Simulated scan of single mutants.
Amino acid sequence: METQTKSIDRRAKRSVRLIKQAFIELMGEKGFHSVTIQDITDRADVNRGTFYAHFPDKYALADSIIRENFQNLLETSLPPDSGWSRSNLRLLIRTILLHFEDACRRCYRIEELDPLFERAVQETLAGLLMKWLGEVSSQEADWRVPTKAMSFMVSWMIFGAAVEWSMAKSMCTIDQMTDHILTLITEGVSRLTPGGLAE
């Protein structure tokens, strides 16, 4: 029975991988709005039922790919034991700026996925910040601003600044922008974090 379950799991993972690969290829060729479920299933060589067993629609598929790629970027760019500190925050900001710079350089058709891309990246970023902040103090009473609110505000600040910078990079270098964002964040949150913000 266990062997059969492993075989089904392996087939399901393979189907998801083929569906994602087909969708990415088709996005590059046709753009998001022109890609249909039939296009995806034909390219992946799976039936429509297999697609719908894993994703309700192409929006959920796109969301899954964006979140997975962004999560992989964070995992490979940040130390495994990273937490709420100035050095980790600097590295996180720089990673996100590089991510947006790379997306612009490759001329991804992100504008077609703006709402999905925005939500997926910002929510993933807020989740990471929430984890970091939760490790500082588990006592919500220690915080002058609730950690959930702080994580969302800081994530939007980083995300919004990265979007603006990537569209008009002439305003400053990546190092300058990293320092600007870091200063804006730390000047406020270092006073709000119980015990201050570690280096």
Rank of each mutant, 00 (worst) to 15 (best):
D42R: 07
I40R: 01
L113G: 12
S138R: 08
R86C: 04
N69M: 09
L197Y: 04
A161N: 12
G196I: 05
N88Q: 07
E164D: 09
V136T: 11
V136L: 02
R10W: 01
E68T: 15
M171C: 10
P194F: 07
K13Y: 09
V136C: 04
I19H: 09
N72S: 15
Q176S: 13
E101F: 00
S138T: 10
Q122S: 12
I158A: 05
A149R: 06
P56I: 03
H54S: 15
S64A: 15
G195I: 04
V145M: 11
M167L: 13
T183C: 01
G31E: 09
I93F: 02
E164R: 12
S190M: 04
Y59S: 08
W143F: 09
P194G: 11
Q176T: 15
Q21A: 15
L26H: 03
V163T: 10
R17F: 05
G160P: 05
L129M: 11
L182E: 08
M171R: 14
Q139T: 09
I40H: 05
T50Q: 07
L18F: 08
R191H: 13
P56M: 01
E140P: 03
W165E: 05
T124L: 02
D102R: 14
L91F: 01
F70R: 03
M1Q: 10
G127P: 03
